[in-house]
Simulated assay, not measured.
Amino acid sequence: MGSFFFRGFIVFSLLMLLKGASSSLDKEFYVTWAADHVRFFNGGQELQLALDTNSGSGFASKNKYLFGNINMQIKLVPGDSAGTVTAYYLSSEGSNHDELDFEFLGNKSGEPYVVQTNVYASGKGDREQRIYLWFDPTKDFHSYGVVWTAQHILFMVDSVPIRVFSNHKAAGVAYPDKQAMGVFSSLWNGDNWATQGGLVKIDWSQAPFVASYRNFNVEPMTASSGEGTSGVNSEQWKKLQWVKENFMIYNYCNDKQRYPLPPPECTTDM
């Protein structure tokens, strides 16, 4: 499919229509990979991705978005999920693409799930942060998404911000504010890196591995939404600091081996 760029009233009008539309996943998404490993059920209101020795699987949204509060409820792979990666992300197309990533890295039973986030802007990424989730994401559905405006991006888990990436174009840092992005998810074998740097491999006797999805939602935002604000209110800021202090295990801003001088955006977004 070609890239679509929605600007001005076209963006707002389209997103308003989407907000009022049904969240039936079989209408919002199409299968991108291994249709026999993707299951729509409950009248299309829920779907599942599966991974086994034959294949992983994936889906993508039929629509693209420029700004918005975009989220999905996900129940992650239960049990011994070591080596599996459940990716949920927004992305545009092409070599200079923009992308906002959640990657849920599987674990041995009883160990906490790791969430890796990343931001690509104009093809430049390498902005990984990792946290432990403070709950068991396999027992029930939880909401994961982004609040994306022209000024800032908040990565959200339920009502808790786990990361903020602000617009620092004035400092020469690319920011995703021109390319509309689709919503994607996939479940795949990442055991060469996902769990303890690839030391723990997938136990295929536990297959099939299954991730479940429901309640996709998009709330519209215009280019001026959040203009003149930091993007995080005082209560959200407290929650964000709580996450950083208690659950963050990696932040590219603090990786002096990779970045002897912290990237410009790290001065405020750390």
Rank of each mutant, 00 (worst) to 15 (best):
M1H: 08
G2D: 13
G2R: 01
F4I: 09
F6C: 11
I10H: 02
I10S: 01
I10F: 07
L15H: 11
L17Q: 13
L18T: 08
S22C: 05
S23G: 15
S24Y: 00
D26G: 00
K27M: 05
K27W: 10
Y30T: 05
A34W: 01
A35S: 14
H37K: 14
G43V: 02
G43P: 06
Q45C: 00
E46M: 13
A50W: 00
A50M: 12
D52I: 12
S55D: 12
G56W: 07
A60G: 04
S61P: 04
S61N: 08
Y65R: 05
L66P: 01
F67T: 03
F67E: 05
G68I: 05
N69W: 06
N69T: 11
N71V: 00
L76I: 12
L76C: 09
V77I: 13
G79K: 00
A82G: 14
T84S: 10
T84L: 08
V85H: 09
Y88E: 04
S91D: 01
S91C: 06
S91M: 11
S92F: 07
G94T: 04
G94A: 05
N96S: 12
N96C: 00
H97C: 06
F102V: 05
E103P: 11
L105T: 10
G110E: 10
Y113M: 15
V115P: 05
Q116M: 14
Q116S: 08
T117R: 11
A121D: 01
G125M: 09
E128F: 07
E128G: 09
F135D: 12
P137K: 06
P137Q: 09
D140T: 13
F141W: 09
H142M: 12
S143Y: 03
S143G: 02
Y144N: 11
G145A: 11
V147I: 14
T149Q: 03
A150E: 10
H152S: 13
H152L: 00
F155M: 13
V157E: 07
D158W: 08
D158G: 07
P161V: 03
R163W: 10
V164A: 08
S166A: 13
N167I: 13
N167Q: 06
H168D: 05
H168Y: 01
V173W: 00
A174V: 04
P176C: 04
Q179P: 01
Q179N: 13
G182Q: 07
G182K: 02
S185K: 05
L187G: 02
N192A: 14
N192D: 13
W193E: 03
W193N: 02
A194Q: 10
T195L: 12
Q196N: 14
Q196W: 01
G198L: 03
G198I: 06
I202M: 09
D203E: 08
S205E: 12
A207P: 03
A211P: 06
A211I: 15
S212K: 11
Y213R: 00
R214H: 04
N215E: 10
N215K: 14
V218L: 15
V218T: 05
P220M: 07
T222S: 13
G226P: 06
G226M: 10
T229Y: 14
G231S: 11
N233T: 02
L240T: 09
L240F: 08
W242P: 09
K244M: 13
E245T: 12
F247W: 15
M248S: 12
Y250E: 04
Y252H: 10
K256V: 11
L261R: 09
D269Q: 07
